[in-house]
Nucleic acid binder design. Structure first.
Lengths: 269, 269
DNA sequence: CGTCCTCTTGACGGCTTTCAATAAAAGTGG
DNA sequence: CCACTTTTATTGAAAGCCGTCAAGAGGACG
């Protein structure tokens, strides 16, 4: 994030022709975990990934203040939404993992509220906001699914706010590690307790509102206490229960309610 | 919030028969500020306020962990979403003002994520989640409007997260005062710079992640610097620009994008 | 007029930051 | 594959913002 920000690279490697196989993508597999979709609905969703765009590390995917014209499905790599405050202090507002949607938040706004920056190289799939019209009109079930996911995001954000407001550095760090782990498990259920964490300690500091020095001290403490194990860039969670108690962490990603979803889509596309 | 929490009072004073006049409520007037609605659409929304329930100060509107079965339109009074952490520390996740919707966030979850407590006495209008089905099915424009509002809420939450993570006590306080003021202006455009703030200093502390002692010191400092004026329970903002610079505050509530909303509702209710 | 709640103010202490310097790791070019 | 450079991680010492503790003042309400 200290690197110069590259311009967006629009080169689109011609994606495989024809509809992709079901569940070919981390995005679709994430959605299907939350609700069964019929073929028509799946077609709407597949369309969101038609356009792949490669992004180098450090690239600015979304620039704050510019017109908000598209969403992005993050297909590979990690990204962050970030805000720079007056004094050059930065705060990471959200970490985006593969399979998550960037910009769902800002659907209601005409300008992008925050920067979104690639933490690693990766690929995103831009999807014009304008296409949402058809989804709301013709695939209400998919629309409801987006609403549900947006709600999940928001609850997760509120949990984070709680730990940022009332929590100590230890609690924030524990929450951070557990939350990333749980979210990685959503699209990657057979991931063990070890995962790749492509953030520098400075970056973790910007997520948690701590300095890099203190981040280092917390990580050292956790390691010495046998709670985690670090082999850069991999982290292994050794005592999830202890961390969970420490942070008061609660997993929200398993608890989707689709009872109120419209029964099925109209087929008049 | 230190008071014992009352049980929810289900006594429903028989509301005026027939549909309420358009824009009779702060909720409808807030929605209409964001998008024009036709009569059918308006009927859906009016239905959300059919059921008024009086709430005493301190009442628990939503209990964390219980099944999430309804949304609430907050018609009168103020409320907060609140989380209690292990050590009895509390964090207010959000302040709800009249005209705002409680529980839109949790639409995707089957259990309520957080408590919601009345700060003052007031009235709420419960609205079963199940009724959202019809809205998504038959009034996609209204559904889109909810999505947009939920997005606004989330962006506002992210701004708050930024100031909680990277901001000092002064900056948090400035942000808090400005944000409340802007949000009150949404449903009450001719409100001046003076408004009623029905929170004790302890409560403000729970919003900002500060102790009541430090809240008191910040308010004193602001007053002495001529930034605000306090005549309990009223606050007047004397130098909005200075506060705005201090907090890096940006008003998001004026910037709704409805370009992607479906053109009009189907009329087949 | 007394009780309770909230606000106010001071002194002290601790968690976290800041400053600074070194070590380790990662990237670069020969 | 090895010097060299740059970035990142590590560690110590001192300072600061904010929390804790405690006591008193002011208001609301019966």
């Amino acid at each position: 994030m200290d690197q110069p920000l590259h311009q967006r690279d629009r080169s689109t490697p011609p994606s495989a022709p024809g509809a992709p196989a079901r569940a070919a993508s981390c995005f679709a597999s994430r959605l299907e975990r939350y609700a069964k979709l019929n073929d028509d609905e799946f077609r709407f969703i597949a369309r969101m990934e038609d356009n792949e765009t490669a992004m180098p590390k450090g690239a600015l995917v979304v620039a704050a203040g510019t017109p908000a014209e598209e969403l992005f499905v993050l297909k590979e790599g990690w990204a962050v939404a970030r805000r720079t405050l007056p004094d050059n202090r930065g705060q990471v507002l959200r970490v985006y993992l593969p399979g998550e949607v960037i910009g769902l938040t800002g659907l209601g706004l005409s300008r992008n509220a925050h920067d979104v920056v690639m933490l690693t190289s990766g690929t995103v799939c831009p999807f014009p906001n304008a296409h949402m019209t058809a989804i709301y009109d013709k695939a209400p079930r998919v629309a409801a699914l987006f609403t549900a996911i947006s709600g999940l995001d928001q609850v997760s954000l509120m949990d984070r706010l709680a730990v940022m407001g009332a929590g100590t550095a230890r609690e924030r760090m524990a929450h951070f590690l557990l939350d990333l782990h749980e979210r990685l498990l959503v699209t990657n259920p057979d991931l063990g307790r070890r995962f790749r964490l492509p953030l520098r300690q400075v970056d973790i500091g910007e997520v948690l509102g701590l300095t890099k020095v203190y981040v280092n001290r917390m990580l050292k403490a956790f390691t010495e206490e046998g709670l985690i194990e670090i082999h850069r860039p991999y982290v292994r969670i050794l005592k999830p229960e202890v961390l969970r108690d420490l942070a008061g962490y609660e997993n929200r990603y398993d608890d989707v309610d689709h009872s109120w979803f419209p029964a099925a889509s109209r087929n008049d596309l």
